[in-house]
Simulated scan of single mutants.
Amino acid sequence: MLCAVAEIASNRILLIENYDKKKKERTAGLMQIAPEVAEWLAREMGYRNYEVEGDPMLLYKPFVNVYFGAAYIKWLSSSDGKERSEEFVIRAYRGGIKKATHKSTADYFQRYLSVRDSLLAKRAEEIYDDNPLASDGLRARMLKAGEECTFWDSAVSAEDMEEMWKHPDVLKEWAKSGERRGRVRFSHDSEKRPYLSRVEVKAVAEIIISRHFSSRGVKPTALAALAEVCSMRFVNGIRSRTGLMGIDYPTALWLYKDVGCRAYKVTSVDDLYNPFVSMYFGAAYLAWLSEYEGRERSHEFIVQAYLGGPENVNLQETGPLWNKFQEALSYYGDSKKDQGSCCIL
């Protein structure tokens, strides 16, 4: 997607600049990002690997430009709290959200599809030429041979790691897989994405609750089930959801600044790729939703609000989000058929 957007937005020219008279907006670089958009992404959405505020010339550097282009695409993919289609994202990238369904962006999307498909075909040819006998399984093994493992120890604090080692179920699992102190590996899927085992997810939830939310009565199984639904236990999240618990940076920052949840500091979106940080703010948000607008809320309201936003809750009928949560609970010992055990608080 990024390569295709760069192709049609700038023709892969690094030092290109355009000005839209209608929007009165200047865009720059490979991904044709407006300086105002990049600064907003850094300031409000926590994308701070590059300090662009006050220095728009940085957008002519390819890594900086692609970084903010990717961040903007990710934001568009869940704009207004909805999971957006590829067509919506690309057309909104070109003309803004209001023009995502306007005829003026239709040709842009068709050009994107043409470039995207040609890039995919070219990539397939390169793989075949490099290794014509390679099946998917063989290629995966070849990639794995040179794969650099991602370690727990580089993602979380020494204090949190010590708590994980003290957890009996985690200790048993890590001992069985041959993990060593200082070199504990995340599990990886076939696409090399790091994820937590269910034992690890539940342990992180139990540690966070025992430290910070014991008086609120939040159940570890509820947090673990939400992680299952939100991110499929992937460390970096999936699609538009950030991190293990799917908590985005603005929500975490609001919980930190305005609600007073300050056990973990959050200064950028990267902080939320720490499983403990994500779990902490997920638990904080769950606790806050339990008394949304000053009223004690039902379990179904809390789950629907967490997954889809409190303004989108519909308690008139059992929705798919609640059903997914119920199913996920069963993975952690809470039977979805036993309503008495399906407790959140």
Score class of each variant (00 low, 15 high):
residue 240 S to F: 05
residue 204 V to P: 01
residue 121 A to I: 00
residue 83 E to N: 08
residue 310 P to V: 07
residue 151 F to G: 02
residue 92 A to D: 00
residue 318 T to V: 15
residue 6 A to D: 15
residue 290 S to N: 03
residue 255 L to C: 01
residue 125 E to S: 09
residue 21 K to M: 12
residue 344 I to P: 02
residue 165 W to P: 00
residue 72 Y to Q: 01
residue 317 E to R: 15
residue 153 D to R: 09
residue 29 G to L: 05
residue 125 E to I: 08
residue 133 L to D: 15
residue 133 L to Y: 13
residue 259 V to E: 12
residue 239 R to V: 12
residue 144 K to F: 11
residue 233 R to T: 10
residue 278 S to F: 03
residue 253 L to P: 00
residue 251 T to S: 09
residue 223 L to N: 04
residue 137 G to K: 13
residue 276 F to W: 03
residue 318 T to D: 10
residue 53 E to G: 01
residue 184 V to L: 02
residue 337 K to Q: 10
residue 307 L to Y: 06
residue 93 Y to G: 07
residue 90 I to F: 08
residue 95 G to M: 07
residue 8 I to V: 02
residue 24 K to N: 15
residue 87 E to T: 09
residue 164 M to T: 11
residue 292 Y to W: 14
residue 209 I to Q: 01
residue 85 S to W: 06
residue 315 L to G: 01
residue 46 G to V: 07
residue 126 E to C: 03
residue 17 E to H: 09
residue 190 S to V: 14
residue 147 E to I: 07
residue 22 K to T: 14
residue 188 H to C: 04
residue 2 L to C: 02
residue 208 I to A: 05
residue 180 R to E: 15
residue 310 P to M: 05
residue 60 Y to S: 10
residue 305 A to Y: 11
residue 147 E to S: 12
residue 185 R to L: 03
residue 298 S to T: 11
residue 202 K to H: 04
residue 129 D to R: 12
